[in-house]
Design a protein around this nucleic acid. Structure first.
Lengths: 241, 241
DNA sequence: TAGGATGTCTACTCGTGAGTATGATCGAGA
DNA sequence: TCTCGATCATACTCACGAGTAGACATCCTA
Protein backbone atom coordinates (compact mmCIF):
# COMPACT_ATOMS: atom_id res chain seq x y z
CA UNK A 1 0.00 0.00 0.00
CA UNK A 2 2.70 2.44 0.99
CA UNK A 3 4.85 1.78 -2.04
CA UNK A 4 5.87 5.32 -2.64
CA UNK A 5 9.58 4.51 -2.61
CA UNK A 6 9.50 1.13 -4.25
CA UNK A 7 7.78 1.88 -7.56
CA UNK A 8 10.14 4.13 -9.59
CA UNK A 9 13.05 2.25 -11.07
CA UNK A 10 15.47 5.01 -10.19
CA UNK A 11 14.72 5.02 -6.48
CA UNK A 12 16.37 2.92 -3.78
CA UNK A 13 19.49 1.61 -5.55
CA UNK A 14 20.87 4.98 -6.61
CA UNK A 15 19.90 7.57 -4.03
CA UNK A 16 20.97 10.52 -6.18
CA UNK A 17 24.78 10.60 -5.67
CA UNK A 18 25.25 14.35 -6.06
CA UNK A 19 22.43 14.80 -3.54
CA UNK A 20 20.91 17.90 -5.00
CA UNK A 21 18.15 19.13 -2.74
CA UNK A 22 16.00 19.50 -5.86
CA UNK A 23 16.15 15.85 -6.75
CA UNK A 24 13.81 14.68 -4.03
CA UNK A 25 11.47 17.51 -4.76
CA UNK A 26 11.33 16.53 -8.43
CA UNK A 27 10.72 12.97 -7.53
CA UNK A 28 7.89 13.92 -5.22
CA UNK A 29 6.43 16.06 -7.94
CA UNK A 30 6.49 13.16 -10.36
CA UNK A 31 5.04 10.94 -7.70
CA UNK A 32 2.22 13.33 -7.17
CA UNK A 33 1.39 13.36 -10.84
CA UNK A 34 1.32 9.60 -10.99
CA UNK A 35 -1.19 9.57 -8.17
CA UNK A 36 -3.26 12.30 -9.72
CA UNK A 37 -3.40 10.30 -12.91
CA UNK A 38 -4.51 7.27 -10.97
CA UNK A 39 -7.33 9.31 -9.46
CA UNK A 40 -8.47 10.49 -12.88
CA UNK A 41 -8.29 7.01 -14.32
CA UNK A 42 -10.26 5.56 -11.44
CA UNK A 43 -12.87 8.26 -11.88
CA UNK A 44 -13.12 7.51 -15.60
CA UNK A 45 -13.67 3.86 -14.91
CA UNK A 46 -16.36 4.51 -12.32
CA UNK A 47 -18.13 7.09 -14.48
CA UNK A 48 -18.02 4.58 -17.27
CA UNK A 49 -19.56 1.90 -15.12
CA UNK A 50 -22.24 3.85 -13.30
CA UNK A 51 -22.51 7.26 -14.88
CA UNK A 52 -21.40 10.60 -13.51
CA UNK A 53 -24.30 11.26 -11.20
CA UNK A 54 -24.46 7.76 -9.83
CA UNK A 55 -20.82 7.82 -8.86
CA UNK A 56 -19.90 9.46 -5.57
CA UNK A 57 -16.42 10.59 -4.70
CA UNK A 58 -16.55 8.05 -1.91
CA UNK A 59 -16.90 5.37 -4.59
CA UNK A 60 -13.86 6.61 -6.43
CA UNK A 61 -11.89 6.85 -3.21
CA UNK A 62 -12.91 3.34 -2.22
CA UNK A 63 -11.80 2.04 -5.59
CA UNK A 64 -8.35 3.51 -4.85
CA UNK A 65 -8.43 2.24 -1.29
CA UNK A 66 -8.20 5.73 0.15
CA UNK A 67 -10.76 8.17 1.55
CA UNK A 68 -12.57 11.09 0.03
CA UNK A 69 -10.34 13.88 1.39
CA UNK A 70 -7.39 12.16 -0.25
CA UNK A 71 -9.11 12.45 -3.59
CA UNK A 72 -9.76 16.10 -2.90
CA UNK A 73 -6.07 16.49 -2.23
CA UNK A 74 -5.47 15.81 -5.92
CA UNK A 75 -8.46 17.45 -7.57
CA UNK A 76 -10.50 20.45 -6.59
CA UNK A 77 -13.97 19.15 -7.39
CA UNK A 78 -15.98 16.37 -8.94
CA UNK A 79 -16.64 18.60 -11.90
CA UNK A 80 -12.93 19.05 -12.54
CA UNK A 81 -12.55 15.30 -12.41
CA UNK A 82 -15.05 14.88 -15.22
CA UNK A 83 -13.40 17.63 -17.17
CA UNK A 84 -9.97 16.02 -16.88
CA UNK A 85 -11.36 12.71 -18.07
CA UNK A 86 -12.89 14.47 -21.03
CA UNK A 87 -9.64 16.18 -21.92
CA UNK A 88 -7.68 12.95 -21.61
CA UNK A 89 -9.95 11.31 -24.16
CA UNK A 90 -10.16 14.20 -26.56
CA UNK A 91 -6.42 14.68 -26.56
CA UNK A 92 -6.01 11.39 -28.40
CA UNK A 93 -8.23 12.60 -31.20
CA UNK A 94 -6.43 15.90 -31.46
CA UNK A 95 -3.19 13.99 -31.68
CA UNK A 96 -4.64 11.97 -34.55
CA UNK A 97 -5.36 15.17 -36.46
CA UNK A 98 -1.85 16.44 -35.85
CA UNK A 99 -0.24 13.21 -36.99
CA UNK A 100 -2.35 13.00 -40.10
CA UNK A 101 -1.51 16.49 -41.23
CA UNK A 102 1.99 15.38 -42.12
CA UNK A 103 0.87 12.54 -44.38
CA UNK A 104 0.92 12.93 -48.15
CA UNK A 105 -2.25 11.01 -48.90
CA UNK A 106 -5.65 11.63 -50.48
CA UNK A 107 -7.96 13.28 -47.97
CA UNK A 108 -10.13 10.18 -47.71
CA UNK A 109 -7.19 8.13 -46.50
CA UNK A 110 -6.31 10.81 -43.97
CA UNK A 111 -9.91 10.98 -42.84
CA UNK A 112 -9.99 7.22 -42.41
CA UNK A 113 -6.84 7.35 -40.32
CA UNK A 114 -8.41 9.95 -38.05
CA UNK A 115 -11.64 7.99 -37.79
CA UNK A 116 -9.75 4.86 -36.79
CA UNK A 117 -8.00 6.68 -33.98
CA UNK A 118 -11.27 8.36 -33.08
CA UNK A 119 -12.99 5.03 -32.71
CA UNK A 120 -10.20 3.68 -30.57
CA UNK A 121 -10.40 6.72 -28.30
CA UNK A 122 -14.14 6.30 -27.87
CA UNK A 123 -13.70 2.64 -26.99
CA UNK A 124 -11.02 3.51 -24.44
CA UNK A 125 -11.59 3.98 -20.74
CA UNK A 126 -12.11 7.70 -21.29
CA UNK A 127 -14.67 7.16 -24.02
CA UNK A 128 -17.68 7.56 -21.83
CA UNK A 129 -16.46 10.82 -20.33
CA UNK A 130 -15.45 12.20 -23.67
CA UNK A 131 -18.72 11.43 -25.30
CA UNK A 132 -21.23 11.85 -22.54
CA UNK A 133 -19.85 14.70 -20.49
CA UNK A 134 -22.92 16.89 -20.54
CA UNK A 135 -22.53 20.60 -20.65
CA UNK A 136 -25.34 20.87 -18.14
CA UNK A 137 -23.26 19.12 -15.51
CA UNK A 138 -20.43 21.60 -15.77
CA UNK A 139 -19.86 25.21 -14.88
CA UNK A 140 -20.28 27.69 -17.72
CA UNK A 141 -16.53 28.15 -18.10
CA UNK A 142 -15.76 24.45 -18.39
CA UNK A 143 -18.78 23.94 -20.58
CA UNK A 144 -17.47 26.53 -23.00
CA UNK A 145 -14.08 24.91 -22.99
CA UNK A 146 -15.53 21.50 -23.79
CA UNK A 147 -17.72 22.89 -26.52
CA UNK A 148 -14.72 24.55 -28.11
CA UNK A 149 -12.78 21.28 -28.13
CA UNK A 150 -15.71 19.38 -29.59
CA UNK A 151 -16.22 22.01 -32.22
CA UNK A 152 -12.55 21.88 -33.16
CA UNK A 153 -12.83 18.15 -33.83
CA UNK A 154 -16.09 18.54 -35.72
CA UNK A 155 -14.61 21.16 -37.99
CA UNK A 156 -11.50 19.09 -38.48
CA UNK A 157 -13.62 16.28 -39.86
CA UNK A 158 -15.59 18.63 -42.05
CA UNK A 159 -12.40 20.07 -43.46
CA UNK A 160 -11.07 16.63 -44.37
CA UNK A 161 -14.36 15.84 -46.07
CA UNK A 162 -14.25 19.04 -48.07
CA UNK A 163 -10.68 18.37 -49.09
CA UNK A 164 -11.66 14.85 -50.12
CA UNK A 165 -14.47 16.13 -52.30
CA UNK A 166 -12.05 18.55 -53.88
CA UNK A 167 -9.27 16.06 -54.55
CA UNK A 168 -11.82 13.56 -55.82
CA UNK A 169 -11.20 10.91 -53.18
CA UNK A 170 -14.61 11.45 -51.56
CA UNK A 171 -18.00 11.24 -53.22
CA UNK A 172 -19.61 14.71 -53.27
CA UNK A 173 -21.71 15.26 -50.15
CA UNK A 174 -22.79 17.77 -47.54
CA UNK A 175 -19.73 18.05 -45.27
CA UNK A 176 -21.68 19.11 -42.20
CA UNK A 177 -24.23 16.32 -42.27
CA UNK A 178 -21.66 13.75 -43.25
CA UNK A 179 -19.41 14.78 -40.38
CA UNK A 180 -22.33 14.52 -37.99
CA UNK A 181 -23.15 11.06 -39.25
CA UNK A 182 -19.59 9.78 -39.02
CA UNK A 183 -18.87 11.26 -35.61
CA UNK A 184 -22.24 10.13 -34.31
CA UNK A 185 -21.71 6.54 -35.34
CA UNK A 186 -18.32 6.53 -33.66
CA UNK A 187 -19.42 8.37 -30.55
CA UNK A 188 -22.18 5.91 -30.07
CA UNK A 189 -19.64 3.16 -29.56
CA UNK A 190 -19.25 4.47 -26.02
CA UNK A 191 -22.85 3.48 -25.35
CA UNK A 192 -22.66 -0.14 -26.28
CA UNK A 193 -19.00 -1.04 -26.02
CA UNK A 194 -19.27 -1.67 -22.28
CA UNK A 195 -21.82 -4.38 -22.89
CA UNK A 196 -20.26 -6.02 -25.92
CA UNK A 197 -16.49 -6.21 -25.87
CA UNK A 198 -16.21 -8.98 -28.43
CA UNK A 199 -14.12 -6.72 -30.64
CA UNK A 200 -11.27 -4.36 -29.82
CA UNK A 201 -11.65 -0.63 -30.34
CA UNK A 202 -9.39 -0.81 -33.37
CA UNK A 203 -11.42 -3.59 -34.93
CA UNK A 204 -14.65 -1.70 -34.46
CA UNK A 205 -13.15 1.42 -35.93
CA UNK A 206 -11.91 -0.56 -38.91
CA UNK A 207 -15.33 -2.13 -39.44
CA UNK A 208 -17.01 1.27 -39.28
CA UNK A 209 -14.60 2.78 -41.76
CA UNK A 210 -15.45 -0.08 -44.10
CA UNK A 211 -19.14 0.69 -43.77
CA UNK A 212 -18.64 4.41 -44.27
CA UNK A 213 -16.55 3.83 -47.35
CA UNK A 214 -18.83 1.48 -49.17
CA UNK A 215 -22.24 2.79 -48.24
CA UNK A 216 -25.32 0.63 -48.43
CA UNK A 217 -26.05 0.74 -52.11
CA UNK A 218 -24.60 -2.12 -54.14
CA UNK A 219 -21.90 -1.16 -56.59
CA UNK A 220 -22.42 -3.89 -59.14
CA UNK A 221 -23.72 -2.13 -62.27
CA UNK A 222 -24.01 1.52 -63.10
CA UNK A 223 -27.49 1.37 -64.66
CA UNK A 224 -29.02 0.46 -61.33
CA UNK A 225 -27.73 3.69 -59.87
CA UNK A 226 -29.73 6.04 -62.05
CA UNK A 227 -32.90 6.32 -60.00
CA UNK A 228 -31.47 6.49 -56.50
CA UNK A 229 -28.91 9.01 -57.67
CA UNK A 230 -31.58 11.40 -58.74
CA UNK A 231 -33.34 10.96 -55.42
CA UNK A 232 -30.16 11.65 -53.49
CA UNK A 233 -29.66 14.85 -55.38
CA UNK A 234 -33.19 15.91 -54.66
CA UNK A 235 -32.56 15.37 -50.93
CA UNK A 236 -29.42 17.45 -51.05
CA UNK A 237 -31.38 20.14 -52.78
CA UNK A 238 -33.84 20.21 -49.91
CA UNK A 239 -30.92 20.66 -47.57
CA UNK A 240 -29.95 23.91 -49.21
CA UNK A 241 -32.91 25.46 -47.34
CA UNK B 1 -55.59 27.95 -15.28
CA UNK B 2 -58.58 26.02 -14.05
CA UNK B 3 -59.84 25.07 -17.50
CA UNK B 4 -60.82 21.55 -16.64
CA UNK B 5 -64.35 21.94 -18.04
CA UNK B 6 -63.67 24.26 -20.91
CA UNK B 7 -61.13 22.34 -22.96
CA UNK B 8 -62.92 19.30 -24.44
CA UNK B 9 -65.10 20.20 -27.41
CA UNK B 10 -67.93 17.98 -26.21
CA UNK B 11 -68.29 19.63 -22.82
CA UNK B 12 -70.48 22.61 -21.95
CA UNK B 13 -72.84 22.80 -24.95
CA UNK B 14 -74.13 19.24 -24.87
CA UNK B 15 -74.14 18.03 -21.28
CA UNK B 16 -74.70 14.36 -22.17
CA UNK B 17 -78.49 14.18 -22.78
CA UNK B 18 -79.01 10.61 -21.53
CA UNK B 19 -77.09 11.59 -18.40
CA UNK B 20 -75.49 8.26 -17.67
CA UNK B 21 -73.66 8.45 -14.38
CA UNK B 22 -70.73 6.83 -16.20
CA UNK B 23 -70.39 9.67 -18.63
CA UNK B 24 -68.87 12.04 -16.16
CA UNK B 25 -66.66 9.31 -14.91
CA UNK B 26 -65.45 8.55 -18.44
CA UNK B 27 -64.88 12.15 -19.07
CA UNK B 28 -62.88 12.51 -15.91
CA UNK B 29 -60.89 9.47 -16.88
CA UNK B 30 -60.04 10.96 -20.24
CA UNK B 31 -59.24 14.20 -18.51
CA UNK B 32 -56.88 12.41 -16.24
CA UNK B 33 -55.05 10.86 -19.12
CA UNK B 34 -54.69 14.18 -20.85
CA UNK B 35 -53.11 15.57 -17.72
CA UNK B 36 -50.88 12.58 -17.28
CA UNK B 37 -49.68 13.04 -20.83
CA UNK B 38 -48.98 16.67 -20.12
CA UNK B 39 -46.87 15.66 -17.14
CA UNK B 40 -44.84 13.24 -19.24
CA UNK B 41 -44.36 15.75 -21.99
CA UNK B 42 -43.24 18.40 -19.56
CA UNK B 43 -40.80 15.96 -18.04
CA UNK B 44 -39.43 15.08 -21.47
CA UNK B 45 -38.88 18.72 -22.27
CA UNK B 46 -37.10 19.40 -18.99
CA UNK B 47 -34.95 16.28 -19.24
CA UNK B 48 -34.10 17.37 -22.73
CA UNK B 49 -33.06 20.81 -21.55
CA UNK B 50 -31.17 19.98 -18.39
CA UNK B 51 -30.68 16.25 -18.23
CA UNK B 52 -32.35 13.73 -15.97
CA UNK B 53 -30.30 14.32 -12.86
CA UNK B 54 -30.33 18.07 -13.11
CA UNK B 55 -34.09 18.17 -13.32
CA UNK B 56 -36.03 18.00 -10.08
CA UNK B 57 -39.67 17.10 -9.85
CA UNK B 58 -40.19 20.58 -8.48
CA UNK B 59 -38.90 21.91 -11.80
CA UNK B 60 -41.33 19.81 -13.76
CA UNK B 61 -44.18 20.81 -11.47
CA UNK B 62 -43.27 24.46 -11.78
CA UNK B 63 -43.26 24.17 -15.55
CA UNK B 64 -46.85 22.91 -15.32
CA UNK B 65 -47.74 25.56 -12.77
CA UNK B 66 -48.60 22.98 -10.13
CA UNK B 67 -46.73 21.54 -7.17
CA UNK B 68 -44.79 18.36 -6.70
CA UNK B 69 -47.52 16.30 -5.02
CA UNK B 70 -49.70 16.96 -8.05
CA UNK B 71 -47.08 15.40 -10.26
CA UNK B 72 -46.93 12.43 -7.91
CA UNK B 73 -50.66 12.14 -8.28
CA UNK B 74 -50.13 11.15 -11.90
CA UNK B 75 -46.88 9.17 -11.76
CA UNK B 76 -45.43 7.03 -9.04
CA UNK B 77 -41.79 8.07 -9.25
CA UNK B 78 -39.24 10.06 -11.17
CA UNK B 79 -37.88 6.86 -12.57
CA UNK B 80 -41.25 5.93 -14.02
CA UNK B 81 -41.42 9.35 -15.60
CA UNK B 82 -38.19 8.72 -17.46
CA UNK B 83 -39.37 5.30 -18.46
CA UNK B 84 -42.60 6.63 -19.88
CA UNK B 85 -40.72 9.22 -21.89
CA UNK B 86 -38.52 6.48 -23.24
CA UNK B 87 -41.45 4.34 -24.23
CA UNK B 88 -43.19 7.24 -25.90
CA UNK B 89 -40.18 7.80 -28.13
CA UNK B 90 -39.46 4.19 -28.88
CA UNK B 91 -43.05 3.50 -29.79
CA UNK B 92 -42.67 5.66 -32.87
CA UNK B 93 -39.83 3.52 -34.10
CA UNK B 94 -41.67 0.31 -33.45
CA UNK B 95 -44.58 1.72 -35.41
CA UNK B 96 -42.21 2.41 -38.29
CA UNK B 97 -41.17 -1.24 -38.35
CA UNK B 98 -44.78 -2.37 -38.30
CA UNK B 99 -45.77 -0.05 -41.14
CA UNK B 100 -42.83 -1.05 -43.27
CA UNK B 101 -43.54 -4.73 -42.98
CA UNK B 102 -46.53 -4.33 -45.27
CA UNK B 103 -44.60 -2.67 -48.08
CA UNK B 104 -43.58 -4.63 -51.13
CA UNK B 105 -40.20 -3.02 -51.68
CA UNK B 106 -36.55 -4.04 -51.76
CA UNK B 107 -35.19 -4.28 -48.23
CA UNK B 108 -32.98 -1.24 -48.69
CA UNK B 109 -36.01 0.93 -49.40
CA UNK B 110 -37.77 -0.46 -46.36
CA UNK B 111 -34.68 0.12 -44.25
CA UNK B 112 -34.49 3.69 -45.46
CA UNK B 113 -38.11 4.25 -44.55
CA UNK B 114 -37.45 2.99 -41.05
CA UNK B 115 -34.32 5.10 -40.70
CA UNK B 116 -36.20 8.21 -41.74
CA UNK B 117 -38.84 7.66 -39.07
CA UNK B 118 -36.10 6.74 -36.63
CA UNK B 119 -34.34 10.04 -37.22
CA UNK B 120 -37.54 11.97 -36.80
CA UNK B 121 -38.22 10.22 -33.50
CA UNK B 122 -34.75 11.03 -32.21
CA UNK B 123 -35.20 14.67 -33.15
CA UNK B 124 -38.55 14.80 -31.38
CA UNK B 125 -39.13 15.99 -27.85
CA UNK B 126 -38.73 12.44 -26.58
CA UNK B 127 -35.44 11.94 -28.39
CA UNK B 128 -33.25 12.71 -25.45
CA UNK B 129 -35.07 10.33 -23.16
CA UNK B 130 -35.14 7.58 -25.72
CA UNK B 131 -31.49 7.81 -26.49
CA UNK B 132 -29.94 8.78 -23.21
CA UNK B 133 -32.04 6.98 -20.65
CA UNK B 134 -29.25 5.17 -18.86
CA UNK B 135 -29.84 1.74 -17.49
CA UNK B 136 -27.92 2.77 -14.40
CA UNK B 137 -30.54 5.32 -13.51
CA UNK B 138 -33.33 2.77 -13.49
CA UNK B 139 -34.36 -0.14 -11.36
CA UNK B 140 -33.27 -3.56 -12.62
CA UNK B 141 -36.77 -4.38 -13.83
CA UNK B 142 -37.18 -1.23 -15.89
CA UNK B 143 -33.63 -1.48 -17.10
CA UNK B 144 -34.34 -4.95 -18.45
CA UNK B 145 -37.47 -3.70 -20.12
CA UNK B 146 -35.63 -0.87 -21.83
CA UNK B 147 -32.82 -3.12 -22.94
CA UNK B 148 -35.32 -5.49 -24.47
CA UNK B 149 -36.95 -2.70 -26.45
CA UNK B 150 -33.62 -1.39 -27.64
CA UNK B 151 -32.53 -4.85 -28.61
CA UNK B 152 -35.74 -5.38 -30.55
CA UNK B 153 -35.02 -2.31 -32.63
CA UNK B 154 -31.40 -3.23 -33.12
CA UNK B 155 -32.32 -6.67 -34.38
CA UNK B 156 -35.00 -5.23 -36.60
CA UNK B 157 -32.38 -3.14 -38.35
CA UNK B 158 -30.01 -6.06 -38.64
CA UNK B 159 -32.75 -8.17 -40.16
CA UNK B 160 -33.51 -5.56 -42.80
CA UNK B 161 -29.81 -5.36 -43.63
CA UNK B 162 -29.55 -9.11 -44.00
CA UNK B 163 -32.61 -9.17 -46.21
CA UNK B 164 -31.13 -6.40 -48.30
CA UNK B 165 -27.89 -8.28 -48.79
CA UNK B 166 -29.91 -11.31 -49.82
CA UNK B 167 -32.19 -9.54 -52.26
CA UNK B 168 -29.22 -7.65 -53.68
CA UNK B 169 -30.42 -4.18 -52.72
CA UNK B 170 -27.66 -3.72 -50.12
CA UNK B 171 -23.93 -4.02 -50.63
CA UNK B 172 -22.61 -7.07 -48.71
CA UNK B 173 -21.58 -6.07 -45.20
CA UNK B 174 -21.48 -7.14 -41.59
CA UNK B 175 -25.09 -6.63 -40.42
CA UNK B 176 -24.21 -6.14 -36.79
CA UNK B 177 -21.56 -3.48 -37.28
CA UNK B 178 -23.56 -1.76 -39.98
CA UNK B 179 -26.61 -1.62 -37.75
CA UNK B 180 -24.50 -0.16 -34.95
CA UNK B 181 -23.13 2.49 -37.27
CA UNK B 182 -26.51 3.49 -38.67
CA UNK B 183 -28.30 3.56 -35.33
CA UNK B 184 -25.38 5.36 -33.70
CA UNK B 185 -25.35 8.14 -36.27
CA UNK B 186 -29.09 8.62 -35.85
CA UNK B 187 -29.08 8.37 -32.07
CA UNK B 188 -26.41 10.98 -31.90
CA UNK B 189 -28.81 13.51 -33.38
CA UNK B 190 -30.30 13.81 -29.91
CA UNK B 191 -27.01 15.24 -28.69
CA UNK B 192 -26.66 18.09 -31.08
CA UNK B 193 -30.17 18.77 -32.31
CA UNK B 194 -30.97 20.94 -29.33
CA UNK B 195 -28.17 23.32 -30.27
CA UNK B 196 -28.66 23.37 -34.02
CA UNK B 197 -32.26 23.33 -35.16
CA UNK B 198 -31.59 24.70 -38.60
CA UNK B 199 -33.08 21.57 -40.15
CA UNK B 200 -36.19 19.59 -39.29
CA UNK B 201 -35.91 16.05 -38.03
CA UNK B 202 -37.16 14.74 -41.35
CA UNK B 203 -34.58 16.73 -43.28
CA UNK B 204 -31.76 15.45 -41.12
CA UNK B 205 -32.96 11.90 -41.47
CA UNK B 206 -33.15 12.33 -45.23
CA UNK B 207 -29.63 13.74 -45.36
CA UNK B 208 -28.30 10.87 -43.28
CA UNK B 209 -29.97 8.27 -45.45
CA UNK B 210 -28.29 9.90 -48.44
CA UNK B 211 -24.92 9.60 -46.73
CA UNK B 212 -25.50 6.00 -45.73
CA UNK B 213 -26.56 5.06 -49.20
CA UNK B 214 -23.68 6.55 -51.11
CA UNK B 215 -20.78 6.00 -48.75
CA UNK B 216 -17.65 8.08 -48.96
CA UNK B 217 -15.87 6.44 -51.83
CA UNK B 218 -16.48 8.08 -55.19
CA UNK B 219 -18.37 5.98 -57.70
CA UNK B 220 -16.99 7.45 -60.88
CA UNK B 221 -14.81 4.73 -62.41
CA UNK B 222 -14.46 1.10 -61.47
CA UNK B 223 -10.66 0.87 -61.81
CA UNK B 224 -10.19 3.24 -58.90
CA UNK B 225 -12.01 0.83 -56.64
CA UNK B 226 -9.61 -2.07 -56.93
CA UNK B 227 -7.25 -1.27 -54.09
CA UNK B 228 -9.69 -0.09 -51.45
CA UNK B 229 -11.94 -3.04 -52.21
CA UNK B 230 -9.23 -5.46 -51.29
CA UNK B 231 -8.54 -3.58 -48.11
CA UNK B 232 -12.19 -3.59 -47.14
CA UNK B 233 -12.35 -7.32 -47.60
CA UNK B 234 -9.27 -7.76 -45.46
CA UNK B 235 -10.95 -5.75 -42.69
CA UNK B 236 -14.06 -7.88 -42.86
CA UNK B 237 -11.86 -10.94 -42.64
CA UNK B 238 -10.36 -9.62 -39.43
CA UNK B 239 -13.85 -9.20 -38.06
CA UNK B 240 -14.53 -12.90 -38.40
CA UNK B 241 -12.24 -13.33 -35.35
C1' DT C 1 16.35 15.94 16.64
C1' DA C 2 13.32 19.95 16.06
C1' DG C 3 10.33 21.92 12.75
C1' DG C 4 8.20 22.44 8.46
C1' DA C 5 6.13 20.36 4.32
C1' DT C 6 3.48 16.76 2.53
C1' DG C 7 -0.05 13.38 2.61
C1' DT C 8 -3.97 11.01 4.69
C1' DC C 9 -7.67 10.21 7.96
C1' DT C 10 -11.90 10.91 11.14
C1' DA C 11 -15.78 13.35 11.73
C1' DC C 12 -18.22 16.65 10.60
C1' DT C 13 -21.61 20.61 7.83
C1' DC C 14 -24.99 21.68 4.79
C1' DG C 15 -27.78 21.88 0.70
C1' DT C 16 -30.69 19.43 -2.20
C1' DG C 17 -34.14 16.68 -3.80
C1' DA C 18 -37.17 12.43 -3.69
C1' DG C 19 -41.07 11.13 -1.66
C1' DT C 20 -45.08 11.68 1.97
C1' DA C 21 -48.61 12.89 5.73
C1' DT C 22 -52.24 15.65 6.15
C1' DG C 23 -55.62 18.66 5.19
C1' DA C 24 -58.08 22.19 2.09
C1' DT C 25 -61.05 22.79 -2.02
C1' DC C 26 -64.45 21.85 -5.32
C1' DG C 27 -67.82 19.66 -8.23
C1' DA C 28 -71.36 16.07 -8.37
C1' DG C 29 -74.89 13.43 -6.65
C1' DA C 30 -78.40 12.44 -2.66
C1' DT D 1 -77.28 21.25 2.30
C1' DC D 2 -74.40 17.31 3.20
C1' DT D 3 -71.33 13.83 1.78
C1' DC D 4 -67.96 11.74 -1.00
C1' DG D 5 -64.35 11.24 -4.05
C1' DA D 6 -61.09 13.48 -6.97
C1' DT D 7 -57.60 16.87 -7.07
C1' DC D 8 -54.08 19.72 -5.37
C1' DA D 9 -51.27 22.49 -1.75
C1' DT D 10 -48.59 23.17 2.62
C1' DA D 11 -45.20 21.56 5.14
C1' DC D 12 -42.84 18.24 6.34
C1' DT D 13 -39.07 13.67 6.62
C1' DC D 14 -35.08 11.57 5.41
C1' DA D 15 -31.11 9.97 2.91
C1' DC D 16 -27.39 10.98 0.34
C1' DG D 17 -23.43 13.17 -1.27
C1' DA D 18 -20.25 17.24 -2.12
C1' DG D 19 -17.08 19.54 0.18
C1' DT D 20 -14.35 20.89 4.69
C1' DA D 21 -12.06 21.43 9.43
C1' DG D 22 -8.80 19.87 11.90
C1' DA D 23 -6.04 16.11 13.79
C1' DC D 24 -2.49 12.79 12.87
C1' DA D 25 1.42 10.58 10.45
C1' DT D 26 5.50 10.54 7.81
C1' DC D 27 9.32 12.27 5.47
C1' DC D 28 12.88 15.96 4.45
C1' DT D 29 15.96 19.42 5.70
C1' DA D 30 18.60 22.02 8.82
Amino acid sequence: MNNRRSSPATAGKHPAPAASPWKASHERQRDREVKRDAVIRAAAREFNRKGYHNTSLDDIAARLEVTKPTVYYYVTSKEQLLFQCFVAGVERIRAAFRDVRRLELPARERLNAVLRRYGEAVASEFGWCMVRAEEQDLSPAMSRHIKALKSEIDHGIRRLIREGVQDGSIHPCDPKMTAFALAGALNWIAHWYREDQSLSGAQIAEAFVTVFEAGLRPRANAAQLATPRRRARRALGALAR
